[in-house]
């Protein structure tokens, strides 16, 4: 509890300091406010359009969560398939790597043609980024079962399915949760990019419109919300990871004696 409070105050302090430095820099250097507005006017703008920003923020959050859920399902299914079956591994693994290397923005126009402008292309874009780290981590969890363990299970005449169920899947759980924070960040990126290309709503869309109209106060307000969301997403899944599988973190401390 105390640690969380510390984290919160530390974060607030670092944000406050950054804001202060920004304000001072803008005033001292005299950069015109249509390029870099001072935080004071950004906040003024943000407070007048608060309900609108809140609406678009919600759209970005809900899109990100949808992408993450879909990406997790796809990632776990593919991860188990690849980790379990050699054939699936040979067929799917290179393809997966290829998919991951293509910038997600290349897929969005195609999704827009298929599903129209709206929430679907961005959610799919987020999912495409999110599933990859999850699949890779699940594969790692399954493949790093010790060879001696396989031998022991073979002398018990266990089937591969039994080993997968009793050992592989529980082993992969901490790997899965470790990948979630990376995947969540990816889902977020996919959604914001998707909103900039083919949505008509959401923070990415607001940012695009604001810069087109040279409304830099609004653009910066949006950017700050994106930053705060990013921090929230990362810290939430980081905390979740440590809570779910304590044995994956503490086994090192107890290995002696």
């Amino acid at each position: 509890m105390r640690i969380q409070l510390n984290l919160l105050t530390e974060t607030a302090a670092s944000l406050l300091l950054a804001g202060l430095a920004w304000e001072v820099l803008v005033r001292v250097t005299g950069v015109p406010s249509y390029l870099v507005p001072p935080p004071s006017s950004v906040f003024a703008e943000a407070s007048t359009v608060m309900p609108v920003l809140a609406y678009h923020t919600w759209l970005t959050i809900s899109g990100t969560l949808s992408s993450l859920v879909l990406g997790a399902i796809l990632g776990v299914v593919l991860g188990i398939l690849i980790g379990y079956s050699t054939i699936a591994s040979k067929l799917l693994y290179p393809l997966l790597g290829g998919f991951h290397a293509v910038p997600v923005s290349a897929f969005i126009p195609i999704f827009a043609v298929w599903f129209g402008i709206g929430a679907v292309p961005k959610v799919l874009a987020g999912m495409l980024i999110a599933f990859f780290p999850i699949a890779v981590n699940v594969v790692t969890g399954l493949r790093t079962i010790e060879p001696e363990f396989w031998e022991m299970m073979r002398t018990l005449r266990a089937s591969r399915i039994q080993v997968l169920w009793k050992v592989g899947i529980p082993r992969a759980v901490p790997y899965f949760f470790a990948s979630l924070k990376v995947a969540a960040a990816g889902a977020f990126i996919g959604n914001v990019v998707g909103e900039m290309i083919a949505a008509g709503a959401g923070l990415g869309y607001v940012l695009l419109v604001a810069t087109n109209r040279m409304e830099m106060e609004l653009a910066f307000a949006t950017l700050i919300i994106l930053l705060l969301l990013g921090m929230l997403i990362f810290s939430t899944f980081d905390a979740l990871e440590k809570r779910v599988a304590p044995w994956a973190f503490r086994s090192q401390d107890n290995a002696t004696g």
């Binding site: 010790e146 001696e148 363990f149 031998e151 022991m152 299970m153 002398t155 018990l156 005449r157 266990a158 039994q162 009793k166 050992v167 529980p170 759980v173 599988a245 044995w247 994956a248 086994s251």
Partner: peptide
């Protein structure tokens, strides 16, 4: 069989580790 590495399943408690072969069989 038993090896140098005890290979216990860390998410299980002691009794459930001992009974793993029984489940498998």
């Amino acid at each position: 069989m038993a090896f140098q590495d005890p290979l216990l399943l860390p998410w299980r408690n002691v009794i459930d580790n001992v009974l793993l072969p029984i489940e498998v069989l």
